[in-house]
Amino acid sequence: MTAASPSEQDLIQRSTTGDSDAFGALVQPHLGLFYNGVLRILGNEADAEDALQDALISIHRDLPRFEGRSRFSSWGYRICLNAALMVRRSRVRIRDMERPDPLPLGPFDDRGHHQESEHGTEWQVEAQAHLLVEQQEMRAVLLRALDELPDSHRIVFVLKDMEDWETEEIAEHLLVPAGTVRQRLHRARVQLQARLRTYILGGRP
């Protein structure tokens, strides 16, 4: 059984025969998803627009090979992420060459233990538990924090924690050892956790 709806199937069929309007109608409902995925990896709108254009060309080219085993949106989204990674490889990022900041952990005493006891560190994982205005603030803080991460760290966080890629798969795409992926992921997680801390820790901030 295929996951694509008949109308989507029809649009796919027409797109493969060169119907440009059908292709537009096919991808239009997913453009926001595609664009935001690419933007999160690349971090700037100009690169994201270029990468999305490349991705749409690839999607159009590869449509005859789409077998409908997954949803079209998932299949297309993955092509978009790959296009973003390709664009990233062709860019030299100054921010990536900087020495990483110390992680916002601690404070620790001379033996590496906490200097003061902290209590009430229960995370409220359900975003719905927060008021709408808080959610909007958290969203803005998270976007800013993601933007401030070095590209190499943000990409790993997006692929692993938001897109559920396997560590080895990320390592293969980024051409780095899996240990490096885990190291970058940890740095990204700790930095983001520190930025969101006042919003997501229950009880006393």
Binding site: N36, R40, T121, E122, W123, V125, E126, A127, Q128, Q135, M138, R139, L142, L143, F157, K160, D161, M162, R189, V190, L192, Q193, L196, R197, I200, L201
Partner: peptide, 14 residues
């Protein structure tokens, strides 16, 4: 717990 919660929270927010 915070590290475990972060992916779900990020997905929900974004």
């Amino acid at each position: 717990r915070g590290l475990r919660a972060l992916p779900l929270l990020a997905r929900q927010l974004l």
